[in-house]
Nucleic acid binder design. Sequence first.
DNA 1: TAAGTAAAAGATGTATTTGTCTTTTAATTA
DNA 2: TAATTAAAAGACAAATACATCTTTTACTTA
Lengths: 151, 151
Amino acid sequence: MLSNACKYTIRSMLYLALYTDETKKIGVKKIAEDLDTPQPFLAKLLQQLTRSKLVSSTKGPNGGFFLSKKNKEKSVWDIIKSIDGTEKFSQCFLGLSKCDDENPCPVHSIVTPFKQRILEDFRDKTILQWAEEIKKSGTVLSLRDFDAFKE
Amino acid sequence: MLSNACKYTIRSMLYLALYTDETKKIGVKKIAEDLDTPQPFLAKLLQQLTRSKLVSSTKGPNGGFFLSKKNKEKSVWDIIKSIDGTEKFSQCFLGLSKCDDENPCPVHSIVTPFKQRILEDFRDKTILQWAEEIKKSGTVLSLRDFDAFKE
DNA sequence: TAAGTAAAAGATGTATTTGTCTTTTAATTA
DNA sequence: TAATTAAAAGACAAATACATCTTTTACTTA
């Protein structure tokens, strides 16, 4: 459903929401290490998100990527739109060209409510809300053991 | 979630379940035309299914692909196992390496019941049952207008 | 203002998926 | 048994996703 690229970027956004702000930035190198993702690939993706105004960045010493207050109000859907596009979410799970309520594929009645439900979360919740849920539930964004505030 | 290859083969299996049996076979050319799929690609896939004993075939005049009674008792899960493999269905939707009931990702509680529900259908229903549902609901397997019994 | 740092940009490389083409093998039937 | 038909098999080609490397630009700070 989501490409690797998109999963990397969603995880990065959640990571950045948790550990950065206007005064605390983190470089790609550390992000990629902490999240256990390919570094140059992630750099490209973050640059793309920066162009789409979903992520903020500054160059030079003490520079890096971070999420501004505004950035944290963006949705996961915004990320998906920027990286993968949204076609997959409107297509039939079995690839039928004509699949709707009148002409349902065999899994239509299972897939449709799921899509609606997950799209609600993707569209209506902010990155910040997601990040707060993660903090509460103790979810780990990577198998690697990292300390976001370590040098 | 499913590759094109897998979607093509599932549709083909349903098509074969509806329109073929030991006495009525159909060649790739017609199947590909009717389902609007790339012909040589579908041929490869059907050959693979034949090797996996999910589809039956005979060469020569009046030959072609068909589903035997036994073939029709197979599940969609068997097709997925043969074409895509099943890893995707056990992986976290957001790509987190550690995501389970104790350590849920933000969409875990939405995705898990969906997966369980759709896996039931994939595993427990037979191809024949799926095909019968399709016949009842009038679902179309392709945008193209085809007559399976036309020469 | 020079040195150092980190993102931006663009070229390049690799793997997988998707798709095609050609030759071979097996079955049918005239 | 020769001609025909259709699948089987394997080599090949294109597109996309995934990933890296190198150079340039911008910012900081000593």
